[in-house]
Design a protein around this nucleic acid. Structure first.
Lengths: 352, 352
DNA sequence: CTGTTAGCGCCTTCAG
DNA sequence: CTGAAGGCGCTAACAG
């Protein structure tokens, strides 16, 4: 898997890049003078400075930021971002927000995809720390808080995004999952639905757990208990969500309403419902109606073929805030000893 | 904008990380022995090795990859990826494919967003090169090939993705834009449409130019010439695409069919058409029908409220191939002097 | 204003 | 098997 360094692409081949020494030699000055010119040219005679600049331009010299940063206290200018899946537009949006804020500080993001694999996340964390990231923004996988302890992170600040882990001292930006799920479910119950289905993540994922909690809470407030047969957990993608929704609709006594606890499940539910509608229309049967409520928006939510309400919020904003929290720590502006927790509000939106 | 290094986040504060020297001292061996242990422990007495490993674990030492790579010939293990917008699911998909392949080689991706700004792209390129990326994958902005010359890239291999630039010697993975647009347009013309609209990118973007070319070509083959008033260029996002579609529909003699040359324009067109349908239904007017053909798929294409066909392909696969081409150069497997160009096929899909 | 010295953290080289 | 010397590319710190 290792690939030789020597080879270079295309025509030309890459010879070892020029260094300050090369420039110094070519310009008949000391490396230090070159370094000074590179850093703005203070304390360099204008004439010398111009000469060095010309040589730099001619040779096409570019300073090695890594070597520079090594000497300067080892700040890499990198922020590590770990997400579970770029294909989910939710995380893509989050990534966009993170990049936006990180880029403003002149830093860059290194992106890793954990694919919901805790082992892989561990490796990536270790790799990122070895590459001297200045900070980390992570959508965590699994429940073990150990890997996020200050010791294992060597003091590198961390912000958990969207999901939290019990027992960490890390900062986190979350959504008001419980309230969102609670209000959505209350709405459906108030509309008279008494068999409400639930499609969500594993309870080992904090968002899955919290949204299920809100769902249950809404029922209990009315003295109800949602039956287990209406609850489907662990669907990570649209296909499995669609299957889960199918299984709900195949029940002898199917739900009249469904709460889909994230956008993958909402999309899958919409697909399952549409499919049945089309089939029913084809054989002139009864077109089934299911009241659908989702969590997380997506591009076509407002044009869904199935009437839909959404517990909405902006993942890009969540990404921005996560990055901002990180820089508050990095800059020393935020010095509180304990973790800082932000819960973003959500709001309900109806799409006829 | 610069942020002090000393400050560290959270409880504890970050003291300067332990180095091989620290471990060596604590284990009563030379730094070299520690280094050997870190590299697998060859030529180290098992007993010493174990002892050093224990110390490493206790102290929580982690080796500084950047320093290591500096000594070892300056291979950073980083691939720079520049895309115009993560919010576009098309590019998010591409990024996913790139990450997947890059991760398999043990490298990481550094991601920059150019936001269709050529100046910003230049800065990011320079920044990435300074950080010693081993290769670059870029969705280019603008038409100037200069910034991609071998000299300005210092021999770092580059693969252009999705879009090309005339006059570069860089490798590229593109789509068969011309054929896709040609076949789509031919279909609509064969269906009898004679006023076909076009929504696309600026012609300064290669995809915009090539897709428009295919559109024109289809007309000319029938001895037709598409009227300028039906062509709208430069929409970068859904909102402006929707406005452009509105303007087409507002024409005295509106198009009966429209070709949307990328997914942002397709989505915008769908929105514009739906909006009018809803309005027409409300006042019991005539529900307008427009034959719509898009380029690039998107999640809800098959559930579009407007009948739709798509010139389809897989952006994730495009990302994978781009990364593979890069590694073919890096590994020296691909040594051809000139650029390598891959055009991926597209296929037409109909969604009732 | 300019150069010299030294060292960031690590590893290649060579000598034991 | 182990260590000492030296240097990757760059720049603080100090001397002139």
């Amino acid at each position: 898997m290792t690939i030789p360094a020597s080879a270079a692409g295309g025509a030309g081949g890459r010879r070892s890049a020029p260094t300050v020494k090369d420039i110094a030699r070519a310009a008949n000055v000391s490396p230090m003078t070159v370094s000074r010119v590179l850093s703005g040219g203070n304390n360099v005679r204008p004439q010398v400075r111009e000469h060095v600049e010309r040589v730099i331009a001619e040779v096409g010299y570019r300073r090695n930021e890594n070597a520079r940063r090594l000497r300067q206290g080892n700040r890499s200018g990198l922020v590590g971002v770990l997400i579970t899946n770029i294909g989910n537009p939710y995380y893509a949006g989050m990534l966009q927000g993170v990049e936006e804020v990180v880029a403003k500080t002149g830093r860059r993001i290194m992106v890793g995809v954990t694919n919901e694999d805790e082992q892989l996340e561990r490796q990536l964390l270790s790799d990122f720390l070895g590459r001297q990231v200045e900070g980390l923004i992570v959508v965590p996988v699994g429940e073990d808080p150990d890997r996020f302890s200050i010791e294992s992170l060597a003091g590198v600040p961390l912000v958990l995004a969207s999901r939290s882990i019990a027992g960490t001292s890390a900062d986190a930006v979350l959504l008001d999952d419980v309230r969102g799920a609670l209000e959505a479910t209350e709405r459906m119950l108030a509309e008279g639905h008494r068999r409400v289905g639930f499609l969500g993540n594993q309870v080992s994922v904090s968002t899955g757990r919290r949204r299920l909690e809100g769902f249950r809470l809404a029922h209990r407030r009315l003295g109800l208990e949602p039956p287990d047969e209406l609850i489907r957990l662990g669907q990570q993608d649209v296909t499995s969500a669609e299957q889960a929704m199918d299984s709900l609709l195949d029940l002898a006594d199917p739900p009249t309403a469904v709460f889909a606890a994230n956008n993958r499940n909402t999309v899958g539910a919409i697909r399952a419902i549409s499919k049945r509608r089309t089939a029913a229309r084809a054989r002139h049967g009864v077109v089934p109606t299911v009241r659908l409520f989702g969590f997380d928006s997506f591009e076509f939510a407002d044009m869904s073929p199935v009437p839909l309400s959404i517990v909405d919020h902006d993942p890009t904003e969540l990404g921005r805030i996560a990055a901002q929290m990180l820089f508050d720590r990095l800059s020393g502006e935020d010095t509180r000893p304990g973790p800082r927790l932000i819960e973003l509000p959500v709001h309900l939106v109806d799409f006829a």
